[in-house]
Design a protein around this nucleic acid. Sequence first.
DNA 1: AGATTTGTTTAGGCAGTCCTAAAATAGCCG
DNA 2: CGGCTATTTTAGGACTGCCTAAACAAATCT
Lengths: 222, 222
Amino acid sequence: MFSQAMQDYLKAIYKLQEQGGAVSTSALAEAMGVAAASATGMVKKLAGLKLVRHHPYQGVVLSKAGEKMALEVIRHHRLLELYLAEALGYSWDKVHEEAERLEHVISEEFEEKIFEALGRPTRDPHGDPIPAKDGTLVVAEHDRLSDLEPGATGVIRQVSDSDAEVLRYLGIRGLVPDAAVEVLEKAPFNGPLTVKTGETSHVLGREVASHIRVEARAADDA
Amino acid sequence: MFSQAMQDYLKAIYKLQEQGGAVSTSALAEAMGVAAASATGMVKKLAGLKLVRHHPYQGVVLSKAGEKMALEVIRHHRLLELYLAEALGYSWDKVHEEAERLEHVISEEFEEKIFEALGRPTRDPHGDPIPAKDGTLVVAEHDRLSDLEPGATGVIRQVSDSDAEVLRYLGIRGLVPDAAVEVLEKAPFNGPLTVKTGETSHVLGREVASHIRVEARAADDA
DNA sequence: AGATTTGTTTAGGCAGTCCTAAAATAGCCG
DNA sequence: CGGCTATTTTAGGACTGCCTAAACAAATCT
Ligand SMILES: [Mn+2]
Ligand SMILES: [Mn+2]
Ligand SMILES: [Mn+2]
Ligand SMILES: [Mn+2]
């Protein structure tokens, strides 16, 4: 239907929009790894197809139809990630890359089959929500682990899947969705956090800790 | 590495070569569903990459490297077909189409994972041999069911996967690889065959019967 | 053999996606 | 406000894979 390139642009626009309104050409180009001129070109094409609204020099926003398309691709991506991890034993740092290519070629039947095989899941291995078939997506904004203060406790809900290195690092340490965590220490001047999971504690740099989203438990037992 | 188009051309050349030496431009174009000029163009490109040898006006032949590439793609295709059927419950008439797209995007790791999950299989759902990782392929030429004479018995070894309609038709009737068959009758003038599988007998047109390859048992009990 | 038919290649184009370089615009700062 | 700078768009090209039409080569028929 729509080309792989178009699907990837729509997905990128969706994700950039999540973190703040209209998407600039340069942000889109950066995310897609192309020159700014290329992004402009594609945006104009998508606008012609009514998948986005483009106000020149002001950025681009998905239309209802464009958002539907983007969520369809994201659904494929996240279902695939989970399937690769659960059914084929992929480690969670490798699923993203493989899903990135598969997402564009699987049929609706394939999507349906793995959805059922996985027991109609709602979250991918990184804790990201899987859009429903009708284009519904439950967004839950959680705090960055790096923003919590010492003494705070909570449960990991999401880990950014953008960096495979980081995922491997965190996976080994059990810092995965549904793990309970407690912030023991937080060094000043953007210093590292000391975090406890289970019986072990780990020292994490701010950068790494910002990849982890935590549902904080109210600190009412302090 | 190589584009999807190149992979499909190599695969098509491989299959055409199987049924008789050098491949003509028109046969290749026909198989690929493109104009003859397009096939010539791609052949010249593949020749430049030393994947085929092209003698203008005389046809094209895969080089050793080209054959390796073709077998790699065919291995992907057949493993995927089997995986879709076994692990995801696809019916055998739908696996081909899905595998046709997936074959180009799965990683070597994916290939390895489904190969192991399937117990290192050697045949796809249609009975076609799966090339080994090193590019080895065991070819076994079997008789067409349509060429057997009344009284002949044997075991179905392969069913051509080129026509989904035919596959559905045969699947319902239990005419699948490993099924034992006996030719009861064969009407003259290219008429239909009457074939027995298990307790039921079926009347099959020549065309359909030619899609079935049978390992004949010597007719020594006639 | 010469002529015709058939198959193949070359020539010239088009669409999609990307690029670099140049032009246009917006936002900021003195 | 007017000019500078950073961002964005336009212009012009490259490259892939496809197309049609025309030129060419081989095979076939008389
Ligand atoms: Mn992608
Ligand atoms: Mn993910
Ligand atoms: Mn293919
Ligand atoms: Mn097959």
